[in-house]
Amino acid sequence: MTFEPEQLGQSGQELASMLRDLRKRAGLSGVRLAARCNMSQSKVSRIENGKVRPSLVDVEQILRALDAPPSTVAEVSALARMANTEWRNLRELRRKGIGTRQAELKALEASSTHMRYFLLSMVTGLLATPEYVRASLAHSPADTSKAIAGKLERQAVLYDTSKQFTFILTEQAVRWPVVSPLALAEQMDRLASLTYLPNVRIGVIPMGTPTPTNPLNTFTIYDASLVTIETSAGSLVLRDGRDIQSYLKEFSGYEESALFGEAARAKLAEWSAACRS
């Protein structure tokens, strides 16, 4: 099955309809299918009505229970992958407004308990000083006033001790000259100060540190339910459990390579002093 990036995330209803039709053709009731899949009947019903997005594991269980032929398995599995992957191109994000994006992120942060951020090339808005936030959006052709306000407002979530945050930044992300050297030093000082928050862990990976894999993109993991991957053209949203576990494993590898606590603060102080000199 071939598809355009814009189709990703838009096939949920088609998947629901196809699974419902396959069940009916197999002559099974929702109750009997649920029993074969070791699922609740209500879950099967929500999947078939498009109210719940099934994972690839859910879909595989259903297809096995229906004894679907290989060609059908391949087609439905591809559709399930599309339904669990969403592409948001930069043009669409700009059309909706950068402020709208901040509202979406705020909602994600509100509904999550443990958030993990791997930052490859820049400091994220949650950790940024006001000057850094303004500079990071300076290239945008749209009005960024709401986005700047939204980014700064979102920082309050860091002080919600019912939530846990782990940030891992490469040296490149910390030292990339988004702002002037003095402003960058202030940004580094802010990172160091935030390491004292009891629910926030900030790690840094100095240049030359071996890592288990070679990082390609900035990404964020929300609990074990969703991953967002940032690219220069837009962002990918992954919801399939196996994709999420893969990124959790990658993040864990970077954690082992990063400096935390006093070692991280010492490295940030060293980089900050270099900026000021």
Rank of each mutant, 00 (worst) to 15 (best):
I47G: 00
I47Q: 02
E48A: 06
E48T: 10
E48V: 10
N49E: 07
N49H: 06
G50L: 12
G50Y: 05
K51E: 13
K51N: 10
V52N: 12
R53W: 00
R53I: 00
R53L: 15
R53D: 07
P54C: 01
P54V: 05
P54N: 01
P54T: 10
P54L: 04
S55T: 08
S55Y: 01
L56E: 02
D58V: 08
V59N: 03
V59H: 02
E60A: 07
Q61T: 12
Q61D: 10
Q61F: 07
I62N: 01
L63H: 01
R64Q: 14
A65L: 04
A65H: 06
A65G: 00
L66K: 03
D67H: 11
A68M: 01
A68N: 03
P69K: 13
P69E: 15
S71C: 03
S71R: 09
T72Q: 10
T72A: 09
T72W: 08
T72M: 10
V73H: 12
V73N: 11
V73C: 11
V73D: 12
A74Y: 12
A74V: 03
A74E: 15
E75P: 02
E75N: 06
L79P: 06
A80K: 06
A80T: 05
A80G: 01
A80Q: 04
R81Y: 13
R81P: 09
R81A: 14
M82F: 02
A83S: 13
A83N: 10
A83P: 03
N84E: 05
N84M: 00
N84K: 04
T85H: 03
E86N: 11
W87M: 10
R88K: 09
N89W: 07
N89G: 10
L90G: 03
L90M: 13
L90E: 14
R91P: 09
R91F: 11
E92P: 02
E92F: 09
E92V: 10
R95G: 13
K96S: 13
K96N: 15
K96Y: 12
K96H: 12
G97D: 09
G97K: 07
I98C: 05
G99C: 09
G99F: 02
T100F: 11
T100D: 07
R101I: 09
R101W: 15
Q102R: 07
Q102Y: 13
A103R: 11
A103F: 05
A103Y: 04
A103S: 08
A103H: 04
E104Y: 00
E104I: 05
L105V: 08
K106C: 11
A107K: 08
A107C: 02
L108P: 14
L108T: 11
E109F: 09
E109M: 03
A110S: 08
S111A: 14
S111I: 04
S112K: 05
S112G: 07
T113W: 11
H114S: 11
H114I: 15
Y117N: 06
Y117A: 00
Y117V: 06
Y117T: 08
L119K: 06
L119C: 14
